[in-house]
């Protein structure tokens, strides 16, 4: 079972400006929690705080099922990789980078290759093992990034805008994979997203940020017109329309 995350009076300042201001919330164990908000709301900053990558004021603690403090095992899926597409690296190489201690130029070690293939199998991407990462589509690359996150057997999976550069078919495949993996692995999952369709279909709980905490609770209770107005301001209508359109498209394609 994944850890619960307790955040108390969290403030992050950059050059004197508050990116997150006195945020207190909880991320319960074993659920999918989405962090939503407009650009610059501090969503990715909160993810970096959880990953302990940046300095902050306040308290962030992780607790196990018995209430004791634990150190989580992170799995992290970034928005994308910013790399030179000509880099000669296969998807299998990419998965081995954090797993294998010895350098890849001294050969791939069998037991790590097995772990990498297990992760690829989980995301239905075994056939991509020998492909160059620079030649993968957005959706394929996201599945490889998910496989890399899963290869370290995490109990806390963090995803930063995981489907932002992916087409609708790729998005559906990715989200279905996430759902099926979570059913089996039972880890805590945190998704940063501005895609309300993804959030309403796949998240159990929502944290709405706009530098401060606007609301938090179950997805059904929180995704109300009033809360969306408070989070997204003038753009809330457009976001709701986009959300409804995408949901209609999804329902139509399912029929």
């Amino acid at each position: 079972m994944g850890p619960s995350i307790y955040i108390r009076n969290l403030t992050v300042r950059v050059d004197g400006r508050a990116i997150l201001d006195n945020v207190s919330t909880e991320i319960p164990s074993g659920f999918v929690t989405a962090i939503i908000g407009p650009n610059g709301a501090g969503k990715t900053t909160m993810l970096k705080v959880i990953l302990n990558q940046i300095d902050y004021a306040g308290e962030v603690s992780f607790k196990g099922s018995d209430g004791s403090r634990i150190i989580p095992k992170f799995g992290y899926v970034p928005q994308t990789l910013d790399f030179d597409r000509g880099l000669p690296m296969t998807a299998l190489d990419f998965l081995l980078l954090p797993l294998q201690k010895g350098p890849l130029w001294w050969g791939r070690k069998g037991r790590f290759v097995e772990i990498a293939f297990e992760s690829l199998k989980l995301v239905e991407a075994s056939h991509l093992a020998g492909r160059q990462i620079g030649k993968l589509s957005g959706g394929e690359l996201q599945r490889i990034l998910l496989a890399s996150a899963l290869s370290s057997k995490p109990n806390l999976l963090l995803l930063d805008e995981p489907v932002s550069g992916v087409d609708i078919a790729g998005e559906r495949l990715f989200c279905d994979l996430l759902d099926s993996i979570r059913m089996r692995e039972n880890f805590t999952m945190v998704i940063v997203s501005h895609d309300l369709s993804l959030v309403s279909n796949h998240a159990d709980r929502v944290i709405c940020l706009n530098q401060m905490l606007v609301c938090h609770g179950t997805t059904d209770e929180m995704l109300t017109p009033a809360n969306l107005q408070a989070v997204f301001g003038h753009h809330s209508d457009a976001i709701r329309s986009q959300h409804i359109l995408r949901k209609d498209f999804k329902n139509a394609s399912e029929r």
Partner: peptide, 12 residues
């Protein structure tokens, strides 16, 4: 890995 994505490497 750091060259590909520093935050990802840090998370590992």
């Amino acid at each position: 890995l750091i060259g590909l994505h520093e935050d990802l490497a840090f998370s590992k």
